[in-house]
Design a protein around this nucleic acid. Structure first.
Lengths: 245, 245
DNA sequence: AGAAATTTGTGCGTATGTATG
DNA sequence: TCATACATACGCACAAATTTC
């Protein structure tokens, strides 16, 4: 591998951040599993074609995120290397999808409110423009670590009180159940990716430049009537999706 | 909205790049469709809480990418705002998936070669470790614009000559056909996202810090025997995936 | 126990990139 | 265009902690 072939100077993204992103990805891919440690700073510096100080800045950022821990004289130890897998299917459920990957999950209601349907939302939910909606802003965690920030809209006429039901149960499925809807299905899922915005960064505990996987999904009841449209943001270094056919 | 609430200083990502990323995303989301223009520089500067120079750097980067064009006295005009949609299903095909979204598509063979199966690849393709594989490095374009860089592996014993077949047809489906395989199905798709590495940036015509959607997919023949494993990288600002249930 | 090798931690001077006004 | 302030990156040197022999 040519030295310095992996990072770009004067690109608006600091070298230390590019390198931090690549080391984080390598950890998630299990490339350092044999030793449980990141290669020595001087080795990384040579690989990336940069000064050791620059590698140290990258490792400091990862230490800040709790991913590695540097020990003088020993090396830089990998503390965490999880990547959660979310199966996407007709019956996508957040908690069940995680299965045995997390011991404990929780859903927090950050905010809720009423708002009229925009043109876009009205069309997706098959409502009239301006129809009353309830919006939930939620943060979902697995084993205490944030794994998604979601914004969900429900028709207010049918799902009054869903905010309270969610706050009590920490689960959309349970909240809908409490309101008398026993089953629902995923109609469509759109997947995109982008950089995290500041609010999401803070809620998800990310640093600037972090990459998000974004899903926009529509759920409907068993008769096909739309019941929920939601936009969920997942940290790309902690999460992947699978589609099984 | 609080001024400056959207961008972060001293984060390893230059303000001009953060702002360029956000404007690019806004264009892709259709937020400026009414005027067909980006808001005036001074307005953007106020919105983001930065100096006008900084906004100008961001717009210059977008102009370099061919997304906007600044006209003195008029404003900054949006040149391109497409986001191609790829449906993912059991019968995922690159060209057919694009449907009417592109007038013309092509597939270029950048490189091909033989290599023994790694432990990971052997397991996925249900072969012995070290079994001979053919690797294709391809670049796919729609209407002349690169939309994906893919690396695909095939069992060499069954698909000798697939490199030539792909070079001639520019299509995996056509190449497999030429080798006597009339149909195949998608078994699994894993979706992740990350920052672009340098080689992909160059092939896809991206600037540093660009976000990629990455799919890892396994295809099998109609009897369920794995025939192909591939890793495809898509520029996240030009592409989205949909899963229809 | 002790010396050598390895690895992280720290300081300082300099050059360039980023952002403001 | 220019001047200013701060962030980023480099090069060199040496200190401190840990492992190896």
């Amino acid at each position: 591998m040519a030295a310095g072939s992996q990072v770009q100077r004067a690109s608006g993204v600091a070298l230390w951040r590019q390198i931090a992103d690549r080391i984080r990805a390598s950890i998630a891919n299990g490339e350092y599993d044999e030793t449980g440690r990141v290669p020595p700073e001087i080795v990384l510096a040579t690989q990336f074609g940069v000064n050791r100080h620059t590698v140290r800045s990258a490792l400091a950022a990862l230490a800040q995120e709790g991913i590695v821990r540097a020990v003088q004289g020993l090396g830089t130890i990998i503390e965490r290397k999880e990547r959660l897998n979310f199966p996407i299917s007709r019956r996508t459920r957040f908690i069940e999808g995680l299965g045995a990957q997390a011991r404990e999950t929780e859903g927090l209601l950050l905010e809720s409110g009423a708002e009229p349907a925009s043109e876009d939302l009205a069309q997706r939910l098959r409502l009239a423009e301006g129809a009353p909606l309830i919006r939930l802003e939620t943060l979902r965690k697995a084993d205490g670590r944030p794994v998604s920030r979601a914004t969900a809209w429900f028709p207010a006429s049918r799902f009054a009180g869903i905010d309270e039901a969610y706050r009590n149960s920490g689960s959309i499925t349970a909240a809908l159940n409490a309101l008398g809807l026993s089953d629902y299905l995923r109609v469509t899922t759109e997947i995109t990716a982008s950089h995290a915005e500041r609010a999401d960064m803070e809620d998800l505990g990310l640093s600037a430049g972090a990459v998000l996987l974004v899903t926009r999904s529509l759920n409907a009841d068993t008769k096909g009537t739309p019941i929920q449209y939601s936009v969920s943001r997942f940290p790309a270094d902690r999460v992947q999706f699978t589609i099984e056919n």
